[in-house]
Structures are given as C-alpha cells and as structure tokens.
Design a protein around this nucleic acid. Sequence first.
DNA 1: CTCCGGTTTTATATGTATAAGAAACACACC
DNA 2: GGTGTGTTTCTTATACATATAAAACCGGAG
Lengths: 295, 295
Amino acid sequence: MKTDTIYKKAFNHALDLLEQVETGVELPTENQLAVQLEISRTTVRKVLRAFIARGLISAGLPKIKLHSTAAAWERYPDAETVQISAQVEKSFMEWILRDDPRPGTLINELELARKFGIATTIIREFLNRFQRFGLIEKRNNAGWIFRGFTKDFALELFEVREMYELRSAKFFAELQDSSPIWGDLGALRIAHVELLADIDRRFHDFSELDSRFHRLVSSASPNRFVDSFSDVISLVFHYHYQWRKHDERQRNEIAIHEHLAYIDALISRDINAIEAACRAHLRSARATLLRSTQD
Amino acid sequence: MKTDTIYKKAFNHALDLLEQVETGVELPTENQLAVQLEISRTTVRKVLRAFIARGLISAGLPKIKLHSTAAAWERYPDAETVQISAQVEKSFMEWILRDDPRPGTLINELELARKFGIATTIIREFLNRFQRFGLIEKRNNAGWIFRGFTKDFALELFEVREMYELRSAKFFAELQDSSPIWGDLGALRIAHVELLADIDRRFHDFSELDSRFHRLVSSASPNRFVDSFSDVISLVFHYHYQWRKHDERQRNEIAIHEHLAYIDALISRDINAIEAACRAHLRSARATLLRSTQD
DNA sequence: CTCCGGTTTTATATGTATAAGAAACACACC
DNA sequence: GGTGTGTTTCTTATACATATAAAACCGGAG
C-alpha cells in the first residue's frame, strides 16, 4: 500500500505554520492551505482532522487556532516523511560505498529488497531509473550487473561533462545584461566567498554549492538532455565526496578557488578566459575523481 | 505471471534448426542447444519435451529427428514471442502516432494499461525507463505528462546529437589502419550503394541502415553515455519516419547520398572534410525532423 | 459566478503472489 | 574429470490487491 509520508510531511509543515500565528486567529481556507503546502485538498483535510483531534484548532467553521498543551505539538520523525522510492537511492548508494562490490558483481533484486526492507517492486523501479547513471546494466531475464565506479566510468563521465559544460558556458557568456541569471551568479559568488572564509568548519557544504553552480551555468540555455545529465554528476559527486574523505577539506578549498576563477571569467564574458577556467576546473575535478575509482 | 514468450521464441527457432537436418540424425546435447539458442537449459528441455509430444523427435536418448507430418511443424505466431515489456514501447509509440496527443497531455497509467491490455506495473516500468527519451516527464504523485514531439524537443535533441557525432567522427578518423571497424564501414558503404540502387522498392529499409551507421561511428570510441543516446536517436527516427510518410522515399534518397559523402570523408581521414560532411548531414536531418514537429 | 467545504471518483505508490526461466546441485557414464 | 541429463532452488517478469493522495463533482453562500 501507499505510505502516508506526504500526509506526515504536510502535518509537520502545517504545524510549523500554525505555530507562528496567535491563539484565536482564523485559519486560511482548505484551498489556500493546499496551495501553500503544495499538496491536494484531500491531504489538507486529513491534516486538519488530525489537528482537531489533537485540540490544536476548533472543530467548527471557521477554524480557529486554540491554545493547547505542548504534547499536542509532537511532530512525525523526518524519516517517515520521505517516500520509500526516494529512500532507495540513498540505501543503494550507501550499500555500494559500504560493501564496495567489485565491478561485475550481480545485483539481486530480492536480496536488495530484503536488505533494504522494502518490496521488490520498488527496487525494480529504482534500478530501471538508475540505469541511466551508467553504473549498472541490465541483462534480460538475468538480473543486473554492477559495472563499478571504475576509471572508464570517470573518463566517460568527464568526456560528456566537458562537452556540456563548455557548451553551456558559451551560452552563458551570451546572456543579455538584463537577465536575472547574472544576479543569481553574483549571489553564488558571494556564497563561495563566504564558504571559503569558513572553510575549516563548513567544507562539506561545498558539494551542494558545486551542484548549484553547475546547474546555474546550464540553466542559461535549457536542454533537457544536458539538464538530466546534471543529475548524474550531482549524484556521483555527492557520493564521491563521501567516498574519499581524507583530503576533503583541501580538495574543496581548491575547487572553490577554481569556481571563483570560473565565475569571474563568466562575468568578464571573455570566451577564451571562460574556456580556460572551465577546462582547468574540470581537469582538476577529473583528477580527483580518478584517484578514487575502483580499478 | 511471467509469460512464456522466451519458450515460444526458442521453440520456433529450434524448429528452424531441426528443419535443416535429415530424418534420423542425432540432435545436439541440451547444453549445446542452450548455447546456440541463447537460453537456459531449462527452456531447452521444455522445447524438447514439446518436440517429443509432437512426434518430431524421439523420446529416448540420444534424441533423433523423426519423420513427421506437416501439422507438427506449426509455429507460434510472432506476436507471442516478444516479452510484454518489449511490446509496450511499440504500443506506446503507436498510440502517440495515432492519437497525436497535445503537448501537456496527462498520461494515465491505468488507462494505458487497459488500452494496451497489460498490467499497470509494466506501464510504470516502461514509463520510468522511457523518461530518458525526454518525451515524457514525471510529476510526483500526480502522474506523467506528455511533453510532445515539439520543435524544442527536436532542437535539443540535435544540439546534443551534433556534439556527440562530431566527437565520435573525430575519434573515428584516428582509428588504426588495422582496426576491423574500417571493414565494417566498407560493408556499410556497400549496403548504402545497394539500397540506393533499389531505392524505389526498399526505401523503408533506410531507417535501420541509418541507425547501424551512426552506431558504427560512435563505436570507434565507446562511451556509455553517448551510446545510450543512440537509442534516443534511433527511436525518434524510427517512429519519425513512420510519422511523415509522404516524401519518405525522396528524403531517404537524399540521406543516403549524405551518408555516402560522410563515409567517404571518414575514409579520407580528412578532419575538415569529415566535419563538413557530418554537419551537412545533421543539418538536413534536423530540418526534416523539424518539419514534422507538433507546434 | 467565484469560492467554500462535503462527497465521490480516479490514480498512484507499494506490497504480495506466482508462473517461467536461470542457475546450481547431483549423480551417472565414458 | 569432463560432459550429460535429472532434479532442486532461486530469481525475474508479470498480475493483482489496496491504502493514500489527487482530482472531479456538487450544492450553497456571498
């Protein structure tokens, strides 16, 4: 059966909102809440019923916030607010990082399902979607093979990444002055500088910044195939950073400097400078990745 | 339950093989047949049992081909020899071609399942895999949207295709003289010439030749991401050719000439000539595709 | 006629069941 | 001891069931 993670997440979210209003105030309509919480009215009503049952709001109409005890404000744990299908990727990647299966290892749907404590359907669905990341391969009627986090994988990944990144960077430089994307780039530059200033403590925040930056660059000229490749890169880097922790701080510091050079080149709109900065960054990112491959 | 399409296909295949030997001849072992038919021994045995039941071969060991009536040689219809999951793509694309849904149309799993006469599980699995073709998009908890065979789609597709094709062509030109791929290219050239000679009758054979040629070019420098994109192109062209039939013969004739020029450029190994021929071909392919988009 | 909340319908997410097929095991024979 | 068939076990492909969530429908009020 479908899990009620959406409801639980909405419940927590609605509780946050409710906390911020005074006792006695009227609540927004169901439709308004549905829009605000980005869920259907059906679920909003379920949340409201729960609130009423807990004595947080009045039962009649219009609904009013009531004064209530602290216990009634109990939230659902975060783990219960994510859909199973979303958890699978995490479980799967963690399994790879932990068990470090050899390239060529057979992946068994049932075994994974048992290991992760979920139904095979979900595993299958996940594997089918995950296929595009190039780390697994399907053999008809005979299961899946883990291809491994190999040198080939890294090289092939970067070959495509370089094509895409250079393409996007060139489009970026041609953006109108009036484009709001320049503002986003400025904000991102500041975020980089701030992170750099506090690098010793916050170095693991870089992974997310990295992903944001590269997505911004490609957003200058949307292309569904390029965009979808960003997911591949994000995933690989997200987990890669966890894979090789030992010089993470230093690696990230270097990467931030490269990003800053790249950002400044973009701002200068000098095509040659952009290409140089972009290539320099990719070269060093590839070298880092290659160092942690499996073969 | 799982369908027995593998068995039926193997049955037909084995019947073809059996037909070619004389009555009284001993059959290969089960293991040998398994290798030859590319299936497991379990299924080979099922086929052999069926053959025995039909009086085609002897029951004891060693198994011998018997003389039997024409009726015993009945085959399973082709439609029953493909796995359901493989049929879905066909049904789905035909649905798109026939119903011509507007971009933005909601796709309903249950409705499709009923229309195609299969379980929703399979539709879901298909949609998940099909996502990468960029024609549909998933909205969480709210089904799928058909994005349409639009101008944007064609342009984005060709942008990536051009990057990939130029890259592969360059690698191709650097292939060692001794590489067997040159032989394949020669054979493909001949196939093109032959098709051209008989273009009036065989013009629909071009679609397959097109796909073979582009795959050969990219095989010079394997890259899983590039290769996987070939599937996208093949699919689009395969169905696109069916979409706009009216000047198909002429379009294909032109494309064959472009291919020949491209092949000759590859053989010459002249980078500039290759790039020119490649771009020329892609430009015309894109123009053709654009003419049949939806908006 | 637009928005509201009550009610009903439909669709998706996830679990479970099972036949078909693959793989492993076992024993015999040359 | 390798190869062959009989037998058993395990895995995948597919169908089906059901709870949750989304969407559609509806009558009433401002």
